[in-house]
């Protein structure tokens, strides 16, 4: 721990807790939510957390911003490299979010819902239809490839039932 005394230690601890807190909350949000839009929001939070951690890795206690001219030249300055990395990371995050929102828009237009479970079923049905085959577990493609008994159309069943009575009575 640097010579700055105990309280600077608590500053860094607070910051680390903030960074990891954001990261974890973002992760929880992404995994547990059932609505795609909320997952994108959680992604925003997770990225903010990661960026905070990255800047923290360059922070030096008692050092100032790496801008010359605003303070005396020989004052210790914070490490500029992580800040550059974060600049890039933020812009990447925005790019990915914009793309995510636009794809969500198209999904909503086609399926009308953004619920993860419903979309998962839609995905499977669409892939099977696109490949030109019956989806797994349906009548045409039983899961275990065990052929199902042919369906008895309702009309015939009634007719056979009717003939049984007549047959039985005659």
């Amino acid at each position: 721990m640097s010579a700055m005394g105990p309280d600077s230690l608590s500053f860094v601890v607070v910051m680390y807790v903030g960074a990891f807190g954001l990261l974890v909350i973002g992760a929880i949000g992404m995994v547990m939510s059932n609505h795609l839009f909320r997952m994108v929001l959680a992604l925003v939070i997770a990225e903010a957390g990661a960026n905070l951690l990255l800047v923290l890795s360059g922070w030096r206690d008692g050092a100032l911003a790496p801008i010359l001219g605003t303070h005396a030249a020989d004052v210790p300055m914070v490490d500029p490299v992580p800040q550059v990395l974060v600049l890039t990371a933020i812009v990447i995050g925005v790019g990915v979010q914009a793309l995510a929102v636009s794809v969500l828009l198209k999904i909503h237009r086609i399926y009308g819902t953004l619920d993860v479970r419903a979309l998962r079923r839609h995905l499977e049905l669409d892939i099977c239809r696109d490949a030109g085959m019956a989806p797994e577990g349906s009548r045409e493609a039983p899961a275990g490839e065990r052929p199902l008994p042919p369906p008895i159309p309702v009309a015939d069943a009634l007719r056979t039932a009717a003939t049984d009575q007549t047959g039985a009575t005659s």
Partner: peptide
Amino acid sequence: VSLGVAVLFVLLHAPDVAMT
């Protein structure tokens, strides 16, 4: 959240990043 993190960046002496 974003604005809060921006303020934190200022505290960490990273003005560029805070503005971005």
